[in-house]
């Protein structure tokens, strides 16, 4: 039995679908999926062309955490909790911007595995900036112009927000780490409450990379410490993916069209330096660098 069918409409090399397939397989398909409007919804849930092999619901862009909470509570009320886990697959915009109901789910600690598929912009509608778009990224709503060089703000720290809510399990992972995704999802499935897993998902179209580069670029985000792979249980840092030789951020940035202007514009150097500072701060915060 497939849990996510072939023939879906994702771009060739889509990071989202790598993550989704691994999450569903980790749960052996025993789950209910709630999915807000976005890339994943559009490529998988056209009427009559449904790609899902598990029970699935799409309601709106801004309410997925509440919809999932409702499924979870209904299953409890009707004594059907054993049927499966309630899983959210939401994009970064639906999570960090318009996802108004996320804090209520955390607050009441509904039994939900909330997975944020972070491709760092509204890719479905053609690459607009979201709260999880990183500094310096050129998007269609933070374009490169005479006085602006892409997004001039920081990436929202959803991990800190999830932790501040007292979420019992908070983790990051990447679509290029299938084994890590599976382990973390299985772990989350064994914990009661509102769990949060943020998965970095390379986007071929939005990021301007080739399918063949997806894994390399995804790995570089980790190897530069721009995307720390961490895991918290009950607020305590449990695991961190450590690095022997942390790479300079240029190696990650230069492969992607969304950061190309940083290498051609004279002001780009300053922004690259600032991005390097973010990576250094991440490395320090999570003690990522292994001593030589």
């Amino acid at each position: 039995m497939r849990f996510f069918g072939r023939g879906h409409g994702a771009c060739p090399g889509c990071g989202l679908t790598i993550a989704v397939r691994n999450v569903l397989e980790a749960l052996e398909g025993k789950c209910f999926v709630a999915n807000p409007t976005g890339c994943l919804e559009i490529i998988s849930s056209q009427y009559g062309k449904n790609a899902w092999g598990v029970p699935y619901i799409h309601s709106l862009f801004d309410n997925v955490a509440a919809v999932a909470s409702g499924i979870s509570e209904a299953l409890k009320a009707m004594g059907r909790e054993d049927e499966g886990k309630v899983v959210v697959f939401a994009g970064d915009g639906a999570t960090a911007d318009i996802g108004l109901t996320l804090h209520g789910m955390f607050d009441r600690n509904h039994d939900v595995i909330y997975i944020c598929l972070d491709n760092e912009a509204y890719q479905n509608t053609g690459h607009q900036q979201s709260a999880l778009t990183p500094l310096g990224e050129a998007t269609t709503t933070t374009p490169v112009g005479k006085i602006m060089l892409g997004k001039m703000g920081r990436k929202k720290d959803m991990i800190a927000i999830a932790l501040a809510h007292g979420s019992p399990y908070v983790a990051t992972s990447s679509a290029v780490l299938p084994a890590d995704i599976r382990r973390k999802v299985k772990k989350a499935a064994g914990i009661v409450g509102a769990k949060y897993i943020q998965i970095h998902c390379p986007c071929v179209t939005g990021w301007g990379i080739d399918g063949k580069e997806v894994v390399k670029v995804g790995n570089l985000a980790i190897e530069t410490a721009l995307y720390p792979i961490v895991e918290f249980e009950n607020g305590k840092l449990l695991t961190v993916r450590k690095l022997k030789d942390r790479k300079p951020v240029e190696e990650y940035l230069k492969l992607q069209r969304r950061f190309r202007h940083l290498f051609t514009n004279p002001e780009g150097k300053k922004i690259i330096a600032e991005i390097q500072r973010i990576a250094d701060a991440n490395a320090l915060k999570y003690n990522i660098d292994l001593k030589k």
Binding site: G5, R6, G7, P12, S44, K49, N50, G53
Partner: peptide, 20 residues
């Protein structure tokens, strides 16, 4: 179907092998 409810795995009838 009432409410645009879809049966599972219908995407499999779409052959994407000719995309690339």
């Amino acid at each position: 179907n009432i409410g645009a409810i879809s049966e599972p795995l219908q995407s499999e009838k779409l052959k994407t092998g000719d995309w690339g």
